[in-house]
Write a protein that binds this DNA or RNA. Structure first.
Lengths: 193, 193
DNA sequence: TCAGTTAGGAACCAATCAGTCCAAAACGGA
DNA sequence: TCCGTTTTGGACTGATTGGTTCCTAACTGA
């Protein structure tokens, strides 16, 4: 029909994700994005409409990638105890920081940022966090100590664990010292043990 | 000596705090601040140097006001049980949201925002959160169930409770539904009971 | 009253922001 | 090969950013 795109949109989205992840929604300027994605204004606007739409697409991608990876870990039946799966997730987040990745969680950063004034972004973040919460809920069902809880109690516990996760990753992005972060992970372990 | 200031700097700082609290550091534009503080550029720059310095002053104020109020609550000896004091803090945060204040915590918002790239702001936020953590630690010492913990264990627990707090307030700002927030508070209560 | 000093206010600044436009280029189908 | 369609890249736009400048107003101490 006509001239085909010279870049892979999925690949470009992946690159955009990393730019937003590092600098946040408002902190990522258009030149930053163009640079990171390796394309020019015309192409970006033709393919992704505008900055906010691009960010929403990135959030979607993050959910079906980073969040789903977490959920997969939370329902990994090779670790029979659900509490241990939750701990694996927390330990993974801590390990990220130790290895020098202080970006935290894209959803958590967005939660503290544009969610406050943008309905659509808030909805997307809320959905992503909800997905994670459901994963935690399922994992708790596979934990002997928590499987006997009532549905409501277990749900409330899942919400709380999610809050701990958001707190941990937010504090990681704020460059809180590693000892404190490690203490958080360790205490979550004690709590769930 | 010379012409005196026509405004109270402390009052102006208070107003600036509310602007930053609502819109965040990067989200608060200079016109926003001038408007909220009721002064003009010349006055602001003469009195507060620049935007970042103003923000650092605001953070300082927040620590010796909002954070100290929290710490006071955490060491309020009219509530003999420290765990109950901690719960009072969490319930207060939840109550804020119910009453329509979805701004969350200024420190938590800054943690997810400018802390990532600004050393000075990060240091100030870290100090503020540390103050809160110490308050939690003291309260745990006044809780029969936790006073017997080793110093290290109690410290780690304080870090974890702080993470829950950061998570709760970050999620509140993201306009997560009230039920979820309530569940978090309730589960923290169960955990500390 | 007047000299000295500082605050206040508005015009101004360069840089940057997100977003638009359009001519040229590159392709597919015929 | 040539036509129609779409992408591409860069020049451009107007608004907004944080910050400066400078003149005048307002005050104090002598």
């Amino acid at each position: 029909m006509a001239r085909p795109r010279s870049f892979d949109t999925d690949d470009a989205l992946e690159k955009a994700m990393h730019v937003f992840w590092e600098r946040g929604y408002e902190g990522a300027s258009l030149p930053d994005l163009l640079d990171g994605m390796g394309l020019t204004r015309g192409s970006l606007y033709k393919a992704f409409t505008d900055k906010k739409t691009l960010f929403l697409k990135v959030l979607e991608r993050y959910e079906t990638q980073a969040v789903q990876a977490g959920v997969a870990m939370l329902s990994d039946s090779t670790a029979p105890n659900g509490a241990e799966r939750i701990m694996a997730m927390f330990k993974g987040s801590y390990q990220n920081v130790v290895e020098g990745d202080a970006r935290g969680c894209l959803l958590c950063t967005a939660a503290a940022g544009p969610c406050n004034y943008d309905e659509e972004i808030a909805k997307s973040v809320s959905r992503g966090l909800g997905t994670l919460r459901d994963g935690i809920y399922v994992a708790l069902g596979a934990s002997p100590r928590h499987a006997t809880l009532s549905e409501a109690e277990r749900g409330a516990l899942a919400d709380m664990v999610l809050a701990q996760y958001v707190g941990l990753r937010t504090m990681a992005r704020a460059r809180i010292d590693h000892d404190t972060l490690h203490n958080i992970v360790r205490s979550v372990g004690v709590m769930l043990a």
